[in-house]
Nucleic acid binder design. Structure first.
Lengths: 143, 143
DNA sequence: CTTCTATTTGCAAACGATTTGCAATTGCAT
DNA sequence: ATGCAATTGCAAATCGTTTGCAAATAGAAG
């Protein structure tokens, strides 16, 4: 049987690269991130971390998120309403569809939309630094 | 000389419609909103309001924003980083380009992008309830 | 125009998410 | 092993926003 390879980012290497120390709390958090299939928020990461090492603090989770975001290893998403949610910066760019009933996040990608955005920005005399495209919806009733 | 008509929403009618009282603070805030050409946040609306009636409180600004949002008279935008910013819900749907240097907001509209979003959602088995498309950029250096 | 009451207000305190100061701990280069 | 800068946990601070409450007031009724 053939599985699609889901790349796991080598955070430790990235951190070493950035010249920061690999500490126990960080190792735990990195582990959680690398096998998170979802888009957890800081509190959720904290919960998972505490289950592994009860001495980890929420501050450290936040600090580590900021650090990883800084070196571009994760992306922070401020979806509507809730706290920021994080995702490993692995694979190529994509946008998000958020299930407003469950909070589930589905990733999608559209070259065409990206092109149109560039076009629009150019016409307005701007260069895009980054953008945010989020669709909020609910599962279509099966018919 | 001919000017494009910038429609001013009749908030008072909308409020009466909603069955709420037209109070002095509300009148002041509504006035500010109807001739705001920008996308002010609550604090900015508060400042402008205090300049007219120094007894108005920030709570009332927040409460009024919530009220107006509830009846669909204004839109709330949670652009990156800062507090929510508001805009009269007048005219047709549009998205926003935010100048990351100045905070200026430029409105744009793309039927094509809207269509593509619908298409994507449909393919994923979802119906879009609402969406958010924000371009963050800087003025292209004139060359 | 007064009377009445439910709605609205200002204030201060509470809130949720996130950040920070600080003293104690710990990686890790030597 | 040693030493010191980086990192931690904790509690307190921060920011934007909401809320409880007693006082003020819009506006319907007379």
């Amino acid at each position: 049987m053939n599985q699609t390879v889901i790349p796991k980012p080598d955070y430790e290497a990235a951190l070493r690269e950035a010249g920061v120390r690999i500490t126990r709390p960080r190792r735990v958090i990195l582990g959680i991130l690398s096998d998170a299939g979802d888009h957890p928020d800081a509190m959720e990461i904290f919960r998972r971390a505490v289950a592994i090492d009860s001495s980890i603090s929420l501050s450290t989770v936040y600090r580590t998120m900021k650090l990883l975001e800084g070196i571009g290893a994760i992306h922070r998403h401020a979806f509507e309403g809730g706290p920021s949610r994080f995702e490993p910066a692995v694979g190529d760019h994509h946008d998000h569809l958020i299930d407003i009933e469950t909070g589930d996040v589905i990733e999608f990608q559209s070259d065409r939309i990206e092109e149109l955005q560039q076009e629009i920005a150019r016409e307005l005399g701007y260069e895009i630094v980054h953008h945010r495209l989020e669709l909020y919806g609910r599962k279509r009733r099966r018919r």
